[in-house]
């Protein structure tokens, strides 16, 4: 499987200059790639384009040779840095999970999610606990490619490693593609097979 970005150029309507210019990127499920860049360099924006979150851009994004689908479940899912923003504050966690897929007990255990957390509201869980839910939720069986945008930046070192190990285990089991976005060089060195610097592929 292949996620391919060709000649991506993008500028926010409010901005004067292009943020991304002629970016080319080819990702597959054989290698885990780390995308590195300074804060504000446009990593999150590129992730949103790659996952079909942003629709108005120049260039093209294809998944297995096809444009990203506009309807139905999106095969390229994005995990956000701030899990609390992607959860309805009035929903209990079991409902939050079920919105994506019927999570198995095995998967709950793998991510260290306690059964008692399922009946709580998002406000009643810590950032690390919420991020476990956010990650597990994105691992719907129909997800083919996972993009993690600084997903562990807000967490302590131990939680960070725990969550990443669980994700990588499932990613390898299901032969999914995985892109890790980070500004943490050490983390990328230990986890990824290869690394890409955004400034090297960005032609602005």
């Amino acid at each position: 499987m292949e996620l391919k970005a060709t000649n991506i150029s993008f500028k926010y309507p409010s901005a004067k200059k292009y943020l991304l210019k002629d970016v080319n990127l080819e990702l597959d499920n054989n290698k885990i790639i780390g995308l590195i860049g300074d804060s504000g360099s446009g990593k999150s924006t590129l992730c949103k384009i790659l996952s079909g979150y942003v629709a108005k851009f120049e260039g093209s994004v294809t998944f297995d040779g096809q444009p990203l689908p506009t309807k139905g479940f999106k095969p390229v899912q994005l995990i956000y840095q701030h899990p609390e923003k992607v959860m309805n504050p009035k929903w209990k966690m079991e409902k939050v999970l079920a919105e994506s897929w019927d999570v198995t007990d095995e998967a709950l255990k793998e991510f260290g999610i306690q059964k008692s957390w399922l009946t709580r509201f998002p406000q009643e869980l810590s950032g690390g606990e919420l991020q476990r839910f956010s990650v597990l939720r994105s691992l719907n069986p129909n997800t083919k490619f996972l993009i993690a945008d600084e997903m562990t930046t807000m967490l302590d070192a131990i939680t960070q490693v725990q969550i990443l190990e669980s994700v990588l285990k499932i990613v390898k089991e299901r032969k999914m593609g995985f892109l890790l976005v980070s500004h943490d060089m050490d983390l990328v060195e230990t986890i990824c097979d290869d690394k890409i610097y955004l400034k090297d592929i960005n032609g602005v």
Binding site: S51, G72, K74, Q77, K85, V86, M87, N88, K90, E99
Partner: peptide, 26 residues
Amino acid sequence: TSEFVKLSQRFGKSKIWIAKKHILPL
């Protein structure tokens, strides 16, 4: 415009589903 509604769309939920399950209770 909230992120959780956008994510719901990315999970393939229809506008009517989102109106009923996300918006109405809020």
